[in-house]
Every structure is written in C-alpha cells, then in structure tokens.
Design a protein around this nucleic acid. Sequence first.
DNA 1: CGCTCTCTTTGACGCAGGTCAAAGAATCGA
DNA 2: TCGATTCTTTGACCTGCGTCAAAGAGAGCG
Lengths: 241, 241
Amino acid sequence: MTSQSKFTVSCQQCGLNELCLPNSLTIDEMDEVDRVVKRGKPLQRGEFLYSTGEDFSSIYAVRSGSIKVFTIDDEGEEQVIGFYLPGELLGMDAIDSRLHMSTAKSMETSSVCEIPFDSIEDLSTSIRNLQMHMYKLLSREIRIDQELQMLLAKKTAEERIGAFLMNLSMRYEQRRLSSTRFRLPMARSDIGNYLGLAVETVSRIFTRMQTMGVLRVEGKEVEILDRQSLCNIAHVRDEEI
Amino acid sequence: MTSQSKFTVSCQQCGLNELCLPNSLTIDEMDEVDRVVKRGKPLQRGEFLYSTGEDFSSIYAVRSGSIKVFTIDDEGEEQVIGFYLPGELLGMDAIDSRLHMSTAKSMETSSVCEIPFDSIEDLSTSIRNLQMHMYKLLSREIRIDQELQMLLAKKTAEERIGAFLMNLSMRYEQRRLSSTRFRLPMARSDIGNYLGLAVETVSRIFTRMQTMGVLRVEGKEVEILDRQSLCNIAHVRDEEI
DNA sequence: CGCTCTCTTTGACGCAGGTCAAAGAATCGA
DNA sequence: TCGATTCTTTGACCTGCGTCAAAGAGAGCG
C-alpha cells in the first residue's frame, strides 16, 4: 500500500485538488490552504470520522477510500444520507447547528484531510475564490439532495438503482477510473437504505439487470455492459461524459 | 391591503429581518445590506419568480405570501422541491451552476426581496457575520433536504403527512402566527407531489386524521386539535416550541 | 349570475415492492 | 484453516398505496 507515502502529500501535489479546491488559486493561496489542512492517519473499515452529537469543528475531504454518512432516526434505525468518494467534501451539514447531526463511517480503509472550519472562514474572507468555492460546494450539495428527493418521491425501484449506478459511474469517471467497471464500496443494504428500498429488492433488481444483459454483477464488482440501456432505465441523458 | 405600504419597507423596519439576516449586524452594516436589496412589485398567484434555464443572478427572500419551487423531470412532470414562507430564502441551489435548475411560482399574492448574489459576495467579504450567515443558511438548506430524504425513504404516508403538518405548524409559530390554525397555501396535489404520494392518498389521510380527532380540515384551512397525537404520528419530538 | 375549469373527496381494484423465511457465499478473527 | 458472523440471493406471500372512475365543491371569468 502506498497510503503511507500519500499520507503527507501537499495539496499542490495531490491529484484530487481540482475536485476539492477552487481551480484558480495562486501558488501562495494554495500554500495558505495547505498550511491549515490536517492529514490524519488512515481510517480502517468501520471506523468513524465523526458521530451524531459531537461538536462540529471541521469539514473533511476524502483522499482515498470511501465514507458513508447516515443519521439515526427515532427508532434507532440508520438512514443513509450519502456516500463520499475521493475528492468529495463532507460534514458541511453541521455548519448551521455547530453540532454533527449525522455520523460518518469509513466503508474501507480511507484517508481523509481535515480542514478546520474556522480556518476556512478566515481564509475565505481574504481569498475571494475560496469563498465562492464554498458557496458553490454548498449549493451543489443542495442540488444533489434535491435530485435524490425526486428519485425517492417519484421513481420506481428499477429507475432508482439505474440512476444510482449511472451516478457512481460518472463520479468514477471524473476520478479517471473506469466508468464501466468498478467496485461498490457499500453493502446492498446501504444501497437499499439510501434509495428507500428493501435489500431484497436491490438484490432482485441487480439479478434482473444482469439477466437483461445490462450489467454483470459479481459480489461488489459491477460491470456496465450496456450503458445506453442503463441510461434509459434511469431516465438519464448520457451527455455529461 | 397594506402591501403598498410594506412595499418600500427597509430591512431595519421589516419584522422578518431576524429570520433572513444575521442577528448581529451593526446599523451601518444593515444599511449596506439594505442598499442592495431590490423590492419588486408583488407577484400574483401563479406568477413566476424565476424559471428553469434562466441565468442566476439573485437569491430571494419571501416577504409575504408563499412560493412553491419545483423542477421538471424528463417526462415533463413537476417535482415539488419546497414551499417557502415569509422570512425564508430561495434560489440558492443555482449558485453552483449559475443557472436556475428549478422554477419558483407564487402560490398566492406574494412580495419578495431580491438580493443580487454579486452584492452578497462583495458584502460577505467585508461583513464577517454575513459570510457566516450565508454558510449557515446553505448548511441549513442541506439539513432540511436530508430530513425530507429520510421521510421519503422510510416513512409511511401517514407519517409523512404528520411530519409535514408539524413542520408547517412550527414554521408558522416562528413567524408569530398560530401554530394550531392555519391556511395551507398549496393544493393537495402539491403536498402529494412533495411527499411522494398520490393526491388521493393525501385526501384520504386528511379525512382519516379528522375522523381520529387529530385535525379539523375545511378546504385549505387546517386546525390541529391534538398536537400530541400528531407528534406521535409524525414521530417528532415536540421539544422545538 | 351561471358556466367552465380545476381541486377535492370517495370507492373499487390491482400491483410494486415490502416482509418473512431460509439457503448459500463471503469475510473475519483466532 | 475453520467456525462464526455478516452479507446476498431467491422464493412465497401480503399489503399500502397507486390508479381509475366519478361525483361534488370551489374559484375565476365574461
């Protein structure tokens, strides 16, 4: 594993900086940001990044691995809110209340950059691009949530899973990974929970899509065999490549 | 109607400023904000504030009335994203793309303050509280969306409607209006659309709650007769009064 | 004031997907 | 390497809510 060498990589050297930082920072500005970022030791599968009720002090950028975020409802049931891949930021839902209302759990060995929110506040008054970047990140998060709302309110199980897979595919592609063959870091039960479906339904639809020749599924490994069909099922235009 | 006199009310005089502005602005700072706010003429029922595809330039604060925000999906169907009451801000989902991806429509005669986003960007670098306020507003929007996600993913029709009514009740209370008797500004079909239910289901559950003695419904007028039962149905702790 | 259009309610019926049960398959710790 | 635990799949059955249909009830307009 090279995670030890990545461990101290600066933002300038990090291949993901175009995903989590604004694209037009000067060298000096990026240094300033770099100086406040804390790079902790990797999280093992199942470890928590933060938990419900804890004080909020930082937001986090995933460097490698993947993180699941969920809340606990009144009956003590998990409700998955999102899955975060390398280059994505999480923890921003706690800015308002200054308290984490959700829990972030590592789904595999993951490394994460911690960015104290106070520092972001300070820097974003002096670095105009950083302020805009924060506004955009928050705004994008809202739009992502809204899209999920539409999925949950209106779509059939098949459409939800189709859209979910297309979404993952596009996110992997952005990260220069294969958009047609990837490993699902989360359990079927997490997918079901996230999409408002029973595990059994997720499983059945995976098998059905395999039978239709759209997908090849082998445990957590997925291969998209017929992207166009998947787009049709998901009712997604395949323009955003 | 006194909307003509309210029409030119400054932020200082506006009874809603504690809802839409940070609470610790100096007089001077509030003047600065006040100077960039545009107060247009009231929107009639059915008029649009912005539409999908338009350029984004401002966010909006509802002064009176109520606004429905929705997207149009691939089949041309409306998907209601939210309802906005006086003191609430909308339009922030377009910051990222600089394009409105949703449409805002007035559900009754409403007046709205327009706040150019460029001005907010400028002011929020100099007014620290304003920057923080924006971060908080955006963060809160994310949390509200996440709560709706949980509702849509896991809850029964009865729970959804219970939670919806409790939510409205609390928002009216914040606005110093009755929390037990209010008028629903939206049609049953909008409620159903928002909550992922058929109109018929909404209607049936209203009648059922009336039969149980929890509600009294008369057209758009609603009276909550048994708040505790409604909380139980919605699985909401009634602490936030 | 009456006509039209939209909104709401109610009933009957069917199905997508939930629940229960149980048998593999995979992962993990010692 | 082996048992234990957790995850996944499949089948059978059932139910909450969607759909269809139709009758009121309002609301807006000429």
